[in-house]
Nucleic acid binder design. Structure first.
Lengths: 150, 150
DNA sequence: TGCATATCTTATTAAAATACTCGGGATTTG
DNA sequence: CAAATCCCGAGTATTTTAATAAGATATGCA
């Protein structure tokens, strides 16, 4: 039940883009350096995000990537689904075209995996890049207040 | 974010044992046949479950396995944790000894993985073998009622 | 125009994890 | 004793992961 680096790196990279919103296209190299990710590997991940419309690219010198739409309209769930495939702890309850199983109607364990899938989806779809930016801001002021009292 | 066969087979096998409660020790071979699992592979999984006290073994002819405690006191989460390791979508929020990360205090993505972990744990720890038996019974009567009306 | 900077695309690969398989030993019942 | 069963460790084929590499394409700027 682990996320691969694809999902983790992808969320990091998208959040990095959100943090640099309005600064024009951001080069992958700078994202990779800030987040400590292999640039070439990140390239592959971002390629998928671009095809899904989550980022837009600008080629050539001074090029780079920007968010495909407003941060409030990009959910962490959207990112994870692109990079890790449809949410599903097991294939028979996949969000899209679940694997057929003859016993599905009478399967008790299936109900469990459905609940797990839905609870994960609820969490990931309730968090947007915008809400993450707000959280980061809050974390920042909390920390500076804390420093102040010490 | 997939469960491996270890977790899936393990839950199936434990539920099978619950369904045969009170029939004395159940041989692995019969569980493997009913559930369509490789017997030798299941052996490895059950070995872990035994060390964790979730099943008891009886060696020798007519031997087999029984549940280690009442079905109401065995949560699906207990089974998954034994077979798949501590719940954690990423290592830095592992349920036990999470991987150290210097940026943990100010990490926004970390909060996400914590929420995911907790929501998964909530689901898996709310389901016991006993509640699964009840669900199975209910599914059964629902299906026979349905058949009756056709 | 030409060079530096980027994205884009495909192929290859090393290492790890997964899902078994196999062989043999220990223990108990009939 | 023989059959059934659990117990244990080693070996292995396949798949996935996480990169790495090499080159093609596009663009801004001097």
């Amino acid at each position: 039940m682990k996320l691969s680096t694809k999902g983790r790196y992808g969320v990091k990279a998208m959040f990095d883009l959100a943090q640099h919103l309005g600064e024009g296209p951001i080069a992958l190299r700078s994202i990779a350096e800030r987040q400590g990710i292999s640039e070439h590997y990140l390239e592959q991940l971002v390629s998928g995000l671009r095809k899904a419309g989550l980022v837009k690219s600008v080629r050539g010198a001074q090029g780079g990537y920007t968010l495909g739409r407003e941060p409030g309209k990009i959910r962490v769930g959207d990112i994870i689904r692109v990079l890790e495939g449809p949410l599903a702890p097991v294939d028979c309850v996949s969000e899209e075209d679940p694997e057929f199983c003859a016993k599905a109607e009478s399967c008790v364990t299936r109900c469990i995996w459905e609940k797990v899938r839905d609870s994960i989806a609820d969490v990931l779809d309730s968090i947007t890049l915008e809400s993450m930016l707000e959280d980061a801001k809050k974390l920042e002021t909390d920390r500076s207040l804390y420093m102040y009292y010490i």
